[in-house]
Computed example of a mutant assay.
Amino acid sequence: MYQLHYRLQQKEATIGVVGLPLAVEYADRGFSTIGIDLDDTRVQKLNDGVNYNDDLEDDRIRRLVAEGKLRATPSYDEADDIDVFFVCVPTPVTEHKDPDTAYIEAATASIAEHLRPGQLIILKSTTYPTTTETVVQPLLEDAAAEKSLAMGEDVFLAFSPERIDPGNETYTLENTPVVVGGVTPTATDLAEQVTAQVIGEVHTVSSARVAEMEKLLENIYRSVNIALVNELAQVCDRKCTKVPSRLCPRMRPDP
């Protein structure tokens, strides 16, 4: 734990990110950052200094790649060198509307093959509460046990929801508050430390499942408000002929 704490403090830690915007932020803060993407085309573009994300500046990508701070790989072969993994994979639903954690499980299994002491894994994918502890943690624990590593002592796990609003120039990744919650207090502390390197306002919570619930509540709040406004818009769009004349100015006779 103390070795990772020091490497983060000195910006000597290597960051591995599945997701370009977050990788760019860490590279811009001076961290050696590896973007993991199974799409060979995107990997080649990034390594050539070509930007494929509309929310990022072309010059910024070219500069970071030229400086050697940012690069991409289509595999987990270099995962042994990574100190902190951010897992930002899709979380779709099945045809029966059940959560599909296949991408999370696949990414975790790949990371598990390269576990070593002093690594921190942070799940950022939007998912249901307990995913970190019941889906991710068992996969890591099995791999850790094979290498005589202990979760919470040698390897650390936390959840911090991704909060990116594409196209929003006011609230960016840097100034949008986030929460972090680890499966152990040490994991929470490390997750807070690494997150605070790129985000100005970081709030710690008591557990990973609390952090997962925070994101779920946020999504529910947004969805309910969007649905309310959409319903209200339909009401407002109805023809005034369906409304009594005393309520509709357009139906009143001219003076």
Rank of each mutant, 00 (worst) to 15 (best):
M1W: 04
M1P: 07
Y2K: 13
Y2E: 12
R7N: 10
R7K: 15
L8T: 13
A13W: 00
A13H: 02
I15T: 12
G16W: 00
V18Q: 03
L20A: 14
A23E: 02
V24D: 02
I36Y: 03
L38E: 06
D39G: 07
T41M: 08
Q44C: 11
K45M: 15
K45S: 14
K45V: 11
N47W: 11
N51G: 13
D59F: 06
R60P: 03
I61H: 09
I61L: 03
L64R: 08
E67K: 13
A72F: 02
Y76S: 14
D77Q: 15
D80M: 08
I82K: 12
F85K: 13
F85M: 11
F85H: 11
F86R: 05
F86A: 12
V87K: 05
C88N: 13
V93S: 07
V93A: 07
H96W: 04
Y103I: 05
Y103W: 06
I104Q: 06
A107L: 05
A107Y: 01
T108Y: 00
A109F: 02
I111G: 11
I111P: 03
L120E: 02
K124P: 03
K124Y: 00
K124V: 05
T126V: 02
T132Q: 04
Q137F: 05
P138G: 10
L140N: 08
E141G: 09
A150D: 11
V155L: 04
V155K: 14
S160W: 01
S160G: 15
S160R: 09
E162Q: 13
I164L: 15
P166V: 14
N168S: 14
N168L: 06
E169S: 12
L173C: 10
N175D: 10
V178S: 01
V178R: 00
G181Q: 00
T186Q: 14
A187C: 11
A191C: 01
V194Q: 01
V198F: 02
G200V: 04
G200I: 02
V202H: 04
T204H: 03
T204F: 02
S206D: 12
S206L: 10
S207L: 10
S207H: 07
R209F: 03
A211N: 09
M213H: 06
E214K: 08
K215R: 14
E218G: 10
E218P: 08
I220A: 13
I220M: 14
I226N: 12
A227I: 05
L228G: 11
V229H: 08
Q234C: 08
Q234S: 08
Q234N: 10
Q234A: 06
V235G: 12
C236N: 07
D237E: 09
C240G: 12
V243T: 14
C248K: 07
R250T: 15
R252M: 08
R252C: 03
R252N: 05
D254C: 03
P255K: 06
